[in-house]
Amino acid sequence: MAGSRADNGERRVTARRSDREEGPKRIGVLALQGDVREHVEILRRLGVEAVEVRSVEDLSGLAGLIVPGGESTTIGKIMVESGLLDGIRSFFYKGGPVWGTCAGMVLAASATTGERQPLLGLMNALVERNGFGRQVHSFEKDLEIEGFEKPFTGVFIRAPFFEDVGPGVEVIGKVGDRIVAAKGENILVTAFHPELTDDARFHEYFLREVCGL
């Protein structure tokens, strides 16, 4: 972990070697709405091939999928219309690794405390949308994350939190008693936006711990 951040050259070499052994590793970013480009740019900086996912066909052959920040009601509606709601569930239940940031964390939950909306239901958790309040209460905060040596700056924008989680969900980050980062077998969620920072540690964590790359 310690060396991998500083040395981009070494990481690129690693990526090329795995290409030779197992074919190219592509990570998809769901590109229906929201901050797609920020995720794509960090992935490319890490030497990973990043592709924008707009249809079910785009999911094939992916080594992982990021569901970015955006408006969860909008993304949910378009996912239903495009067949991606079922497509992503199927990708996930066949073992496909998924990371949801903010709106992606809402969509990953199995239930919401608010009005009904389309959810992927990939994680045994109850989510409170806009749990920290309206935009004037949006904030940045240094967080202690399980498995991270140094604090990570969380950028929270009208962010959700998990009020409760069920078996199989490991909590890795909290603000007070609110769950803001969690992990399952092949899923990661963060209520904040690592893609809005220059710190690539969460993207590396997803690739290493969840995608096994």
Partner: peptide, 8 residues
């Protein structure tokens, strides 16, 4: 960042 979430 709030505006980034509105893109698209």
């Amino acid at each position: 960042g709030m505006a980034q979430m509105l893109k698209g």
